[in-house]
Design a protein around this nucleic acid. Structure first.
Length: 730
RNA sequence: GCUGCUGUAGCUCAGUGGUAGAGCACUUCCUUGGUAAGGAAGAGGUCAUGGGUUCAAGUCCCAUCAGCAGCUCCA
């Protein structure tokens, strides 16, 4: 007999061949029908899995999972991935299966299949899946040893699975399979008892992927799907997907005239149109003011820096591929640079190439003394590098830190001057891969709200505390209240880190202490730190539940070392400062792009590019409207007047569509009494009130940075916790 | 960068080898109104760019550029 402990603490006896399903059966047949899977301790298992495998000391802690449990949805989706794979194998010949895990809100399955799948095939796939679901065959688990497993997969012509058993699963003696009808798949599970539990599913999209993520490897086709316990849940999800699409900052940005990316300027180069630029400058002004209050000092640095600067910082040539190529002041610069790289990797290089190089160099006026006498490649490279150092090369700056480090070095520093906090809205350029560019969220030219704090090790804790406080203020000022902090610490077993053991320990303890006392929701991730220092990233959830990584605070022990930064301590000896990089917004592009989606374009009063639209009833009231516009403008509001000869309904409609927070409707009655019929974009008519009252009302809303529009969204409820790709594959 | 899809008026899009289209926006005129579209007329295009096939190309083919989706990447 097995002793099983149920969640209520009660212990029940069951025969040795008991499974979660039979346990459920003994409680009630309705429960048995509702069981999706079960949990023994922390492990989710099939409802049909015999429980004797878990017998050991004491009773088996069993929890039956029904559709009310969040874990059950993952099990359902993974099973649905099998159903989809089965349907696709029925419809198309020569399907080789790769992996089919669950993901946030659904699942995918990767296939190697000769037929090019497209949206046109989805209906057929769904119809075939529906047949499988309707038949409701059980998912049956079985295990094989390595030889049997390889033989089975070979027999089924599943070459990828064979390869995976031989490579990825080389250490496994026993391999799990699931059978459902004619469909057999190498899989760790768990699965739902039978296919009829799938109540709602949809094939969502198809895309390319690679076998084991290797871009040089075989290209596979990935079919995405989603599955739910009810049509209603699925519909809410589909609605949310729609909502996210409607909020796309690229669509809204175009419609509202916030920004533009022009192919003629270049890909990934964002042009801030007046309205987008207004939002950005409001955010910058806000942050600048807060930083000045906190002892930061503004600095400016140029957009170029000599390549040697980045060689010192270590960013060149290490990140060369993700930087814009160097600018050479000398004609021969690019040639010499290219030739050094050929010499460093001389595969296929011939003597005639060298002759050609020397001739070209001569034509371009490049004298290389002693080059032809130098024999090992290393010597020739040294001569070329010597030449390079004598001829200017610049990089468009990929980051501001080296410049700020130079500013620190501009004068001898005493401990009395620390912390030195230098800030700059610094524009940097990164040569992102074309496929990574995405509206404002991923661009090639971006402006960081960058600052570098140079301080003593003992000041790290207080500076970190202040930075966290500033970041929180920034996020909450735009209504982002749902966030957590990921603290990235070093892997204590690794030796890849720079900086002393003692400093790391002190710093990590300090960061942890600050986060703990701040009451923030934070999680520590060991091994995630950069080699140069620990960092804290703010993970922010927007109002439809999507997660964004925004602000960051990073400690740096590396650059102070590389740039030989020093200050004189109270002991009259030189010491190395710690450098803290921090950016509450991250980048202005990304932050405004994210905010656009968060607000769906309806910016709060304090950020709205246009706050009030004055709508005169007819041209007879235009004079009063213009007079009002001046009063509002003088009071610091952003306001325009709609003087078209259109009906007021049309003016209001346009203002509503432009998401302007307030409309001031004025006709002869208002002109007579110096009043305004105020209309709120969200709640409609607010009635007629004196101009002074409107000024006061709206002024307060701006001053308090009131956010009113976000709470409206009800869709947040359907979004689940984000989850990593589920581990139901080996 | 890889794979696939897309590129027609300011915007959203229709146009399957035979004279370049619609709605919205824009301009002008009429209308002078009370909280989400009053009416009429007009203007606007080297159909992304460069080649090719054809009597004939927006339409078919190739290349390039750009956008989108996914993959890979993000100091």
């Amino acid at each position: 007999m097995l002793e099983i402990q149920l969640p209520d603490g009660s212990i029940v006896q069951h025969p040795d061949n008991a499974s979660p399903l039979s346990v459920a059966e003994s409680i009630g047949s309705r429960l048995a029908k509702a069981v999706i899977a079960a949990k023994v301790g922390d492990q989710v298992i099939d409802a049909t899995r015999p429980l004797h495998a878990f017998a050991g000391k004491g009773p088996i802690p069993l929890r039956l999972l029904t559709e009310k449990d969040p874990e059950a949805l993952g099990v359902l989706r993974h099973s649905c991935a099998h159903v989809m794979a089965r349907a696709i194998m029925r419809l198309f010949p020569n399907v080789s299966l790769a992996f089919g895990p669950t993901i946030n809100n659904g699942f995918y399955y990767d296939f190697d299949v000769p037929k090019k799948l497209s949206e046109d095939d989805f209906a057929a796939i769904e119809a075939e899946m529906a047949k499988i679901v309707e038949k409701g065959e059980p998912f049956e688990q079985f295990s094989l040893n390595r030889e049997q497993a390889i033989e089975l997969c070979s027999d089924m012509k599943q070459a990828l699975k064979v390869e995976h058993i031989q490579t990825g699963l080389a250490s496994h003696d026993s391999l799990g399979f699931y059978r459902q009808g004619e469909f057999v798949d190498l899989c760790r599970g768990p699965h739902i008892p039978d296919a009829s539990r799938i109540k709602a599913f949809k094939v969502m999209s198809v895309a390319g992927s690679y076998w084991k993520g290797d871009a040089s490897g075989k290209q596979l086709q990935r079919v995405y799907g989603t599955a739910w316990f009810s049509q209603k849940d699925m519909q809410s999800y589909l609605d949310q997907v729609e909502e996210a699409k409607k909020r796309d900052h690229r669509v809204i940005g175009k419609k509202l005239g916030l920004f533009q990316i022009s192919a003629e300027v270049g890909q990934g180069m964002c042009l801030w149109l007046p309205k987008g630029a207004r939002i950005r400058s409001l955010l910058e002004d806000f942050l600048r003011k807060e930083m000045l209050k906190r002892g930061y000092e503004p600095v400016y640095s140029p957009h170029l820096g000599r390549v040697e600067l980045y060689e010192t910082s270590g960013h060149f040539p290490y990140y060369r591929d993700s930087q814009f190529p160097p600018l050479f002041v000398s004609d021969a610069g690019a040639l010499v640079d290219a030739w050094i790289r050929r010499l460093e990797d001389p595969k296929g290089l011939q003597d005639v190439h060298e002759t050609a190089f020397l001739q070209s160099a001569e034509v371009l006026g490049c004298e290389l003394k002693g080059y032809d006498k130098a024999s090992p490649a290393a010597d020739r490279i040294a001569i070329l590098q010597q030449w390079q150092r004598q001829h200017e090369r610049y990089l468009v700056k990929p980051m501001n830190c080296p410049h700020h480090a130079q500013i620190f070095k501009a004068a001898p520093r005493s401990y009395k001057q620390l912390p030195l906090r230098l800030f700059e809205f610094g524009t940097v350029y990164r040569f992102e891969q074309t496929g990574e560019l995405n509206g404002m969220l991923r661009v090639r030219g971006l402006t960081q709200d960058d600052a570098h704090i140079f301080c003593t090790q003992d000041q790290v804790e207080q500076e970190f505390r202040n930075t966290i406080e500033l970041t929180r203020l920034v996020l909450e000022s735009v209504g982002l209240k749902d966030y957590r902090v990921q603290l990235s610490l070093r892997d204590p077993k690794s030796d890849k880190y720079v900086g002393s053991e003692e400093n790391w320990q002190k710093a990590e303890a300090a960061l942890r202490r600050v986060l703990t006392e701040s009451g923030l929701n934070f999680s520590a991730a060991e091994g995630e730190a950069a080699f140069y220092g620990p960092k804290a990233d703010f993970m922010v959830r927007d109002c439809i539940g999507r997660q964004w990584q925004l602000g960051t605070v990073q400690l740096d022990y590396n650059l102070p070392e590389r740039f030989q930064l020093e200050y004189v301590g109270a002991d009259n000896k030189t010491h190395r400062p710690v450098m803290i990089h921090r950016a509450p917004f991250g980048s202005m592009e990304r932050f405004v792009g994210m905010l656009t989606e968060h607000f769906a374009g309806a910016f709060p009063m304090w950020l709205a590019p246009e706050q009030i639209r004055i709508c005169p009833l007819s041209e007879k009231s235009n004079d009063y409207a213009v007079e009002l516009e001046k009063r509002f403008t003088d009071a610091g509001f952003r306001v325009t007047t709609d003087l078209r000869g259109a009906k007021v309904q049309a003016k209001i409609r346009d203002a509503q569509l432009e998401l302007i927070p307030y409309m001031a409707v004025v006709g002869p009655r208002e002109a007579e009494t110096q009043s305004i019929a105020l209309r709120d974009r969200i709640s409609g008519e607010l009635g007629t009130m004196p101009v002074t009252e409107v000024l006061e009302l709206l002024g307060t809303e701006v001053r308090e940075r009131r956010i009113r529009q976000v709470a409206e969204n009800k869709l947040a409820a359907v979004t689940e916790e984000p989850q990593e790709v589920a581990e139901n594959e080996y």
